[in-house]
Simulated scan of single mutants.
Amino acid sequence: MKKWMTIILMSSVLLAGCGDTGQGKNNGDQNEAEVPAIIEAVIDIPEKTEVGKEVELVVTVKQGKELVEDASDVKFEVWKEGQKDSSEKIEAKHTEKGKYIAHHTFSEDGVFNVQSHVTARDMHTMPTKTIQVGNVDANQHEHNDQGEEHGHHHGDVSIHLQKPEQVKATQQIPLAVHLQKDNKPLTKANVRLEIFQEESNPAWVDMTERENGEYTTEYQFPESGNYTVRIHVENDEGLHEHTEEAVTVE
Results as ranks from 00 to 15, higher is better:
G238R: 07
E77V: 01
V74N: 03
V74C: 04
Q132N: 12
V205C: 04
K181P: 01
E66R: 06
V249F: 12
N201H: 13
K181L: 08
V191Y: 00
T248D: 10
P46F: 10
Y219N: 00
E32Y: 10
K53H: 04
M1C: 14
T248V: 13
T49K: 04
R230F: 09
I39L: 11
A138H: 02
G110F: 06
Q30Y: 13
Y227Q: 00
K2F: 09
M10I: 10
N201K: 15
S87N: 12
I195Y: 10
T187H: 05
T217A: 09
T217R: 04
D109S: 08
E234H: 00
H153F: 13
S72H: 02
G52V: 03
K97S: 15
I43C: 06
N26Q: 14
P174A: 01
E88C: 02
W4V: 11
W79D: 08
Y227L: 02
V118D: 01
I195G: 03
K80A: 03
V68A: 05
I159N: 00
I43V: 09
H242N: 13
D182C: 06
Q83G: 01
V58C: 09
N183L: 10
N139E: 13
K53V: 02
S11F: 14
V13A: 05
G64L: 02
H104L: 01
H152P: 05
G24H: 14
K99A: 15
E165I: 15
N139P: 02
D122K: 15
T125A: 04
T217K: 05
I101W: 08
D206N: 15
K99T: 14
Q63F: 01
G19M: 14
V205E: 03
E241Q: 13
H240T: 11
Q140R: 09
E56M: 10
P127Q: 04
E47L: 10
G24V: 12
G225N: 03
Y227S: 03
G52D: 05
H117D: 05
S72V: 05
L239W: 03
E50T: 11
V59C: 06
V78N: 11
I43P: 00
P202I: 05
P222H: 10
N26M: 15
E54H: 06
T130E: 15
K129Q: 13
R210C: 09
W204K: 06
N144G: 09
M126D: 03
K84D: 04
A71R: 00
E91A: 12
P174H: 05
H240A: 12
A37W: 04
A37F: 07
D70S: 05
I173T: 15
K163D: 01
G82K: 05
V58T: 11
S86M: 11
K89N: 15
K184C: 09
I45M: 06
Q63M: 11
A203F: 14
S158H: 14
N212R: 07
G225E: 02
E223N: 14
S87T: 08
G110C: 07
E250L: 08
V74M: 00
A169F: 08
A16R: 12
T208Y: 12
L193G: 00
H152C: 07
E50G: 10
G24F: 13
T125P: 04
H94W: 13
G22C: 06
